[in-house]
Amino acid sequence: MATMKLSRALSAATASYGVFALVQPDHLPDALGSARGDRDGYRLLAQAYGVRDLAISSAGMFGSPAVVRAAMRMRIAMDLGDCALLALRTEGDVRRKVMGVTLGWGALNIAALLIDRRD
């Protein structure tokens, strides 16, 4: 039976981000250099990310191998969606940072999923 160790580890890391996003929602508007009028919206978005990431990560940490694979695929799709949406709202260095983080995390999740498939 596949243990999905890397996928479970990345799910745990994503869960820790979820907790951070709920406890420190200002991190997102700060990182995005948001305008004063956008800060509340980005704080709410950070909290939504926190709830979403905790839910999907719970499945990725504690589910059966089939559930872990599904959770990882959803995580990858969410990273791509986050990249697309946030890249539309940012520019310059902030856009590069957003794309680097979201695409980088998505790529790590893809790698873990592919490596775990070999088990």
Score class of each variant (00 low, 15 high):
L10T: 07
T90H: 09
M72E: 00
A112N: 03
V101Y: 03
M78G: 00
A35L: 13
E91F: 08
M72D: 04
H27Y: 14
S7N: 09
A31D: 03
D26Q: 14
W105A: 07
M1C: 03
H27R: 07
I56L: 15
I76G: 01
K97Y: 13
S58T: 14
R39F: 03
R95G: 11
L6A: 05
Y17L: 13
A77Y: 09
V51E: 03
A12T: 07
A48R: 13
M74G: 06
G41Q: 07
L22G: 07
Y49W: 12
R8Q: 09
M61I: 15
A55K: 03
I56S: 00
A46C: 12
G63A: 09
F20S: 01
A107W: 02
A15T: 02
L32T: 01
N109P: 05
D30M: 13
D79E: 15
A9M: 12
V98S: 07
A107S: 09
L86Q: 08
G37D: 15
S11L: 06
L113F: 05
E91C: 10
L54Q: 05
Q24G: 00
D26K: 12
L28T: 00
L6P: 01
L80I: 09
S11W: 09
A13T: 11
R89C: 14
A77L: 15
A35I: 01
D26C: 01
A48E: 02
S16Y: 05
M74P: 00
C83T: 09
A2Y: 07
A87N: 01
L86F: 12
L44A: 12
R69T: 11
A66I: 06
A112V: 00
V19K: 06
R43M: 05
I115L: 14
K5Q: 11
Q47I: 03
G50D: 03
G60T: 03
G37M: 04
L88T: 03
A31T: 05
L114R: 13
A107L: 15
G60Q: 06
I115Y: 04
M1R: 11
R36T: 02
A84S: 11
L108C: 13
N109F: 10
E91I: 07
L86Y: 02
